[in-house]
Amino acid sequence: MNDFLAVANSAFMYLVAGTVILAVVAMSTVFMIRAYREGIRLGIDKKKLQKAMTSSAAFTAVPSISILLGVLALAGKLGVPIPWLRLSVVGALQYESVAAQMAATGLGVPFTLESMNESAFVGIIFVMTIGIVWGGLFCIFGLKKYQSRITGKPGKKDARWGQLMFTAMFIGMVCAFVGAAFSDLRGYGDKDATFLSLAVMIISSASMAAFTYLVKNRGIKWLENFSLSFSMIIGMTFAVILKLAGVR
């Protein structure tokens, strides 16, 4: 193994990464238990709470595998523990490789395994960490104030508009990804034009329509928690099939 990779994959790195990840696991566990207890205390149906948990667990499995791919993608240059840490805590799939690349450029080191050395490695971790903590910092210092401005005083708002606004907000988010799929049709930068993104979007959407029909009209209730994951898997399977069929 390359000398640098031996250091980057050493037990100490796993210890550092594992400690921070454990803190995040503890935070998630505490929040989960407290929310559950509070739900029970407020008289929310236990089944509803359990449904929220099981549907979220089922939903998360597939996207988590793609996050694991992000770890793999960075592991060749930064070892396994640091990408594992970065993608388990605050990190985002889209952010980490770009941030690592920018950090290396700032430090004047090409982002390749051959050019990596210990001080560049530490520098990249510093930059990646400092670059990503802002969302958490804004939450600490500004979330309470921001939320009180958004929600205002209870009872004075138009409740229906409130619900619609949140739905619209999410529709806007989905539309951004619809747009991105159309961008892929034309290709940009070093990305080749591909029909796959749009095709997968249409197929997973149609699958979701079919599952919704089965749940609502055929009474297959157990499917509800898995509709989204199954729709994604069908869409992604079609991506493989279409690619094998020569679709670009």
Partner: peptide, 18 residues
């Protein structure tokens, strides 16, 4: 191709719902 299209798959399915 499957992993490259995870976001279109996710937002395609969620798109239908919303």
């Amino acid at each position: 191709p499957a992993f490259n299209t995870i976001l279109p798959a996710l937002f395609g399915a969620m798109g239908f719902t919303y």
